[in-house]
Amino acid sequence: MIPLSWYLVVSAVLFTIGVVGIFFRRDLITLFMCIELQLNGVNLALIAFSRYLPDISGQIIVFFVITVAAAEAAVGLAIMIALFHHKEHLDSERVNLMQG
């Protein structure tokens, strides 16, 4: 049987890879994908906990996370399309209209 800690290690590593990606990538689409990766890292931890506790609520929370991720993707990608029509690029460093 695989100990819980192995799953937690995978989950932590995935979350960290998402964070690293957010820090050094610049196009918004990839940043968005890194956020999805972070959510998935958390999901893995939740399901692992729900298996080892055992409490089914972990799986329910993952269900809601996936729902929220779907809504987030719909709105986020719509924003990106609007931004691209406006600016002709999706470079996070050149989207600086709000900076003083």
Binding site: M1, P3, L4, S5, L8, V9, A12, F49, Y52, P54
Partner: peptide, 12 residues
């Protein structure tokens, strides 16, 4: 995670 109390627990 090292402090998580159920690290040694068997699967449910």
């Amino acid at each position: 995670f090292r402090r998580a109390p159920l690290l040694g627990m068997p699967a449910g």
